[in-house]
């Protein structure tokens, strides 16, 4: 299974749209993308996980790494549109308490 990574830059916003599965095999590319966008001070990095169907603990590690990088570089990280299964991982690990995370909204727009 693959992971499609689309990066859109708008002003001081970097929107990363992901589709597929995040695991040990697909993680390296995403790690690289995170490494670049989180290093710009003042940058707001928004990760859209609507089409991420599966994520394992390697994926969680990436998000922790990205979060630490935003803290060091004075940028921001936001996760949006998480599916239940992926959201559960962030809840169990307690990461939803220290990260800006929004689950997928069912039944229409916000």
């Amino acid at each position: 299974m693959n992971l499609e990574i689309t990066l859109t830059e708008e002003g001081n916003q970097s929107i990363i749209t992901l589709a597929g599965e995040i695991d040990a095999y697909t993680a390296p590319d995403l790690k690289e993308t995170f490494g670049i966008v989180t290093k710009k001070a003042g940058q707001e990095v928004i990760v859209d996980l609507e089409h991420v169907t599966y994520m394992d603990s390697t994926g969680l590690g990436l998000f922790i790494g990205a979060l630490k990088s935003t803290k060091e570089n004075d940028s921001e990280l936001k996760l949006v549109n998480l599916q239940d299964r992926v959201y559960r991982l962030f809840q169990i690990t307690g990461l939803d308490e220290i990260m800006d995370i929004k689950a997928a909204i069912r039944g229409g727009n916000e």
Binding site: S57, G61, I64, G65, I92
Partner: peptide
């Protein structure tokens, strides 16, 4: 540990 390492 490195920044993206963690243990549950």
């Amino acid at each position: 540990t490195e920044s993206n390492m963690f243990i549950t």
